[in-house]
Design a protein around this nucleic acid. Structure first.
Length: 450
RNA sequence: GUGGGUGUAGCUCAGGUGGUUAGAGCGCCAGAUUGUGGUUCUGGAGGUCGCGGGUUCAAGUCCCGUUACCCACCCCA
C-alpha cells in the first residue's frame, strides 16, 4: 500500500485563480462595462481564442511574435492564442462585412494571452473589454467614444474622480511635419508618451538616441506638453504651433468638435483634459487618442485607452474600415478599487440565507427557499442540518445580508424570524410577508442604524 | 529578454556570527445548557522552512542551480 504521489497544485506564471472574494467584484465590473456599452447601442460579439498564426501575425511586429502562445494543433495547423481583441475583430469584420452593415458598433469582453514578463497588474492571461465603432469617420463617433468612457467610470463608481486625457495624433503629426521629424514619428511619440513618467530631460535624451532628434527639434515637440490652462486656451495655443500644416489643423478641428460634443452631452469640464503630450505607444492610431486616469491613483497608469484608426482590416480586405474605440483595463481598475477600499468582502452571491436546523423539516425549507427565489431573491439554504449558531456564524462570515430563521414552531404557525445580519436586528413576521420584507431590507443601507 | 530583491504554518511575519522536539499574532476546527452570528474563555489541528543539489560531525541559517512573486528597463491592458 504505497501512497500515490501527489501532484503539486500550482498555476502557471502569469496565470491566476479568482476566489469568490475577487471573482464577485470582477464579474460585477464586467457586467457594468457591458451594460454601459449596451446603453450606447454596442452589440456583443465573440471570436475564438485560437486563430491561425498567419492571421495574428499580420501586424508583423517582432515583439508580439515573441510574446505569442503558438503551437501546432491536432490537425497540424500553425495556430496561436490571441494577444488582443483588435486583430480578431479585424479578421471578423473582413470575413463578415457583408452581413454586418456599416457603421458597425461592437463590444467584446474576453481573455487574451501574452507570454511577456510579469509584473504588478501585468499578467500573461488577462481580460480585455473593448468597444469600437467602425465604418464611419465622423467625429460624432469619436465624441461618443469619449462619452462611453466617461459613463463607464461614472457607473463603476469613480464619479468625479477620474480624468480623461484627450489628444489627436494629427496634431502631433502636424507639429512633427513642421519640425521635419515626420518620418521619425514612432520613436518620437513613444518618447513623448513617457513624459509624465520620466520627465522632460530624459525624453529629450531618448528622442536624440532613438530618433536622432536635435535639441531644438526635441524641444519643439516638448513645447506641446508645456501648454497649460483651460481646454479652450490650449486649443487656441495649438494653432500657431501647428502652423500651416493641413494635417495639424484638421486635428485641432477634430479636438474642438469632440470637446464641444462632450460638453453638450453634459460631461463636466473637469473630467476631460486636452493633453497634447499623450501619444499612446501604438502606431496605428491616426486621430483622436484617449487615456483615462484615476484622480486618486494616478500612478497606476491609464485605465482605459483607445483612439481612432484609419483602416482596421487592411490586411484582410480591400474595403477600407476606419473606426474608433477603446479598451477598459479591467484588472487595473479592479486593483485600484481594491486599493481604494471600494470592494466589499462578501464571498456569497445570495443575499438571503436559510439555516437548516430542524432536521425533520427538509421539505419545508426547500419550499420556503423556492418561494423566495420565485419572488426574485437569491437564497442559499444550508445543505445539512446543523447547530443554528454554527450556521449563523457561517452566514455572517460569508456576508449574507439576511437570515431567515424557521424551526418547527414557526412552520406550525406560518411565521418566521427575519434577521438582518449587518444591522444585528431581527423581527417576527408571517411567512406570507417574508419576500416583501426581505426586498425592503435589501433596498436599505447595511450600516447599523440607531 | 536584461538587471536587482524576496520566498519560514491558510494570512502577516520572528527566527544574532550554522548546533537539541522551528515560534508569535491573526485565521481555522471543537467545546463552554438542548433553536441564534462578528466579543470572551478553554482546547486542538496545521510547517517537505519554495524546489533540487553541494559544503559540514551538524543548515531554516553558508554556496550553486532552479522555480514563483515583487521592483526597474522594454513594451503594454
Amino acid at each position: 500500500m504505497s501512497k500515490p504521489k501527489l501532484i503539486q497544485p500550482r498555476t502557471l506564471k502569469g496565470f491566476r485563480d479568482f476566489p469568490p472574494a475577487v471573482a464577485i467584484p470582477r464579474e460585477a465590473l464586467i457586467e457594468t462595462a457591458k451594460a454601459t456599452y449596451r446603453s450606447f447601442g454596442f452589440s456583443p460579439i465573440d471570436t475564438p481564442v485560437l486563430e491561425l498564426t498567419e492571421i495574428l501575425l499580420g501586424k508583423g511586429s517582432d515583439e508580439t511574435d515573441k510574446q505569442m502562445y503558438r503551437f501546432e494543433d491536432p490537425g497540424g495547423r500553425d495556430v496561436a492564442m490571441r494577444f488582443d481583441l483588435t486583430i480578431p475583430f479585424a479578421r471578423f469584420v473582413a470575413q463578415n462585412a457583408g452581413e454586418l452593415g456599416m457603421p458597425f458598433k461592437r463590444y467584446h469582453v474576453g481573455p487574451v494571452w501574452r507570454g511577456e514578463n510579469t509584473q504588478r497588474g501585468r499578467y500573461r492571461e488577462f481580460l480585455q473589454c473593448d468597444f469600437d465603432t467602425i465604418g464611419t469617420e465622423n467625429v460624432m463617433a469619436d465624441t461618443e467614444c469619449a462619452l462611453v468612457i466617461c459613463e463607464l467610470f461614472n457607473r463603476i463608481g469613480f464619479t468625479d474622480r477620474f480624468t480623461m486625457h484627450l489628444n489627436n495624433r494629427r496634431v502631433l503629426s502636424g507639429v512633427l511635419e513642421q519640425l521635419d521629424l515626420a518620418d521619425q514619428a514612432v520613436p518620437v511619440l513613444r518618447a513623448l508618451d513617457k513624459l509624465a513618467k520620466i520627465g522632460p530631460e530624459k525624453v529629450v535624451e531618448e528622442m536624440a538616441r532613438t530618433a536622432g532628434a536635435s535639441a531644438s527639434q526635441a524641444d519643439g515637440v516638448l513645447a506641446l506638453a508645456r501648454l497649460e490652462g483651460s481646454n479652450a486656451k490650449v486649443l487656441e495655443a495649438l494653432g500657431p504651433i501647428v502652423g500651416d500644416s493641413e494635417l495639424g489643423r484638421s486635428g485641432i478641428e477634430a479636438l474642438g468638435a469632440v470637446l464641444a460634443g462632450v460638453a453638450a452631452a453634459g460631461v463636466p469640464e473637469g473630467r476631460v483634459r486636452l493633453d497634447v503630450s499623450i501619444a499612446r505607444g501604438l502606431d496605428y492610431y491616426t486621430g483622436t487618442v484617449y487615456e483615462t486616469f484615476l484622480d486618486d491613483l494616478p500612478g497606476i497608469g491609464s485605465c482605459c485607452s483607445g483612439g481612432r484608426y484609419d483602416d482596421l482590416a487592411s490586411l484582410y480586405t480591400k474595403e477600407r474600415l476606419p473606426g474608433v474605440g477603446a479598451s477598459l483595463g479591467l484588472d487595473r481598475v479592479l486593483a485600484a478599487m481594491e486599493e481604494l477600499g471600494m470592494l466589499g468582502s462578501t464571498t456569497t452571491t445570495a443575499a438571503v440565507f436559510i439555516p437548516y436546523f430542524d432536521k425533520d423539516r427538509g421539505a419545508d425549507y426547500l419550499r420556503l427557499a423556492t418561494e423566495l427565489r420565485k419572488a426574485g431573491l437569491a437564497v442559499e439554504l444550508y445543505p445539512e442540518p446543523r447547530k443554528l449558531g454554527a450556521q449563523l456564524k457561517y452566514a455572517d462570515r460569508r456576508g449574507h445580508r439576511l437570515a431567515v430563521i424557521v424551526g418547527g414552531d414557526e412552520f406550525a404557525q406560518g411565521t418566521c424570524q427575519l434577521k438582518d445580519l449587518a444591522r444585528k436586528t431581527s423581527e417576527e413576521l408571517a411567512q406570507a410577508d417574508l419576500a416583501a420584507a426581505c426586498a425592503s431590507v435589501l433596498a436599505s443601507q447595511p450600516t447599523a442604524g440607531s
